[in-house]
């Protein structure tokens, strides 16, 4: 017999399955926007949208990945709004695919990263935060949140192969940016060292 889903049922799902991911969503939102107010707005919008479509959510499935996908799409739409491009309707935001590259919001992010860079003293944090947003996103989702390649592919709406290549490129970019800093702490890229040995 199907269980009747009333307001109490949805409140329970919201409290037990959605709200525990608040800190992770806020951390992700902050590292996308570098601004506490914008991060608050994004997280709030994510939860309101999740609640509006809570009847589409199947209890016990991957709530975290679903919430991250809503937040990522809200982030992209925020920059579409900034550039006065037409918005998507709510339901499409949740289920549809987005263009892989969006030069309008990429160039907007460059400006914000420049401002943020001036505020940060820590070279490492700066190196991470100056990664292009597409590359920073996969690092955050994989290395910080522990999502699988498949989950990241669904959240970001790109093929798994693209997830792997973006992670590879993002890590290489970081290694280049950090090579001088890392040497001070005894880190060294063994691939480079090995090549050097083979060439001598």
């Amino acid at each position: 017999m199907a269980m009747k889903k009333d307001a109490t049922y949805y409140d329970k799902v919201f409290e037990e399955e959605f709200l525990p991911h608040l800190d992770a969503l806020y951390t992700f939102a902050f590292h996308l926007t570098y601004n506490e107010d914008d991060a608050n707005d994004l997280v709030q919008e994510t939860y309101l949208k999740a609640f509006r479509f809570i009847d589409k959510y199947v209890e016990g499935t991957n709530a975290k990945a679903w919430l991250f996908k809503i937040l990522k799409n809200a982030f992209i739409n925020q920059y579409r709004k900034q550039s006065k491009q037409p918005n998507r309707v709510d339901y499409e935001e949740i289920v549809s695919y987005h263009d892989e590259e969006d030069t309008t919001y990429s160039s907007y992010m460059d400006l914000r990263e420049e401002m943020f860079q001036q505020m940060m003293g820590d070279e490492v944090t700066t190196a991470i935060n100056t990664l292009p947003v597409d590359f920073r996103t996969v690092i955050l989702l994989c290395d910080v949140e522990g999502f699988t390649y498949e989950e990241i592919a669904k959240i970001v709406d790109i093929p798994i192969g693209t997830v792997r290549s973006r992670l590879h490129r993002a890590r290489n970019m970081l290694k280049e940016k950090l090579s001088e800093y890392a040497k001070k702490f005894g880190y060294q890229d063994k691939r480079i060292e090995k090549k050097d040995k083979q060439n001598h």
Binding site: Y10, T125, I128, D143
Partner: peptide, 30 residues
């Protein structure tokens, strides 16, 4: 190297955000 994780600091939202979300979903249609 995966040092990187230690540099991406997790951040806590303010209690006001949780309160605001809960207030807004009370008046939002489920």
């Amino acid at each position: 190297f995966r040092f990187i994780k230690s540099k991406i600091h997790s951040r806590k939202p303010s209690p006001a955000l949780i309160k605001s979300i809960k207030e807004k979903i009370r008046i939002a249609p489920a």
